[in-house]
Amino acid sequence: MERIPILRMGEFLLVTIQVDMHDQLALTLQDDLADRISATSARGVLIDISALDMVDSFIGRMISTISGVARIMDAETVVVGMQPAVAITLVELGLTLPGVSTALDVERGMNLLRTRMGRA
């Protein structure tokens, strides 16, 4: 079965979404990530969406759900690399992603997570 890989980077997990995701793949990722957070006790999750040329309400809901699951498991989610055209479209779509932080790239996302964890 097709899957999106989840990489471990120290106490963080990195998910790079590269394919034009269809719904089943998105749901599998949601489950996989919840499992990996619990298995690794990761404190933060970075979701790199720089390769996505659009984010619709389905992907938006998935990001919200992941961040909700992560928060319950004491991990923070940061979405990194959102393309400007995608960001502009999200505003008009009306999707606000409450409680989800964003950063320009993976490095800034990791810095943000470290700051949140009180070790800047």
């Binding site: 040329d53 659009m54 984010v55 619709d56 389905f58 400007p84 995608v86 502009i88």
Partner: peptide
């Protein structure tokens, strides 16, 4: 459907932001 409309939008000379808006509407 998203991929097909992205291609049409490019052929019609839509700006990147407008392509993205149309493709997102298509997805919904």
């Amino acid at each position: 459907a998203r991929q097909a409309v992205r291609k049409l939008a490019q052929e019609c000379g839509l700006r990147l932001v407008d392509q993205t808006k149309l493709v997102t509407a298509v997805s919904e």
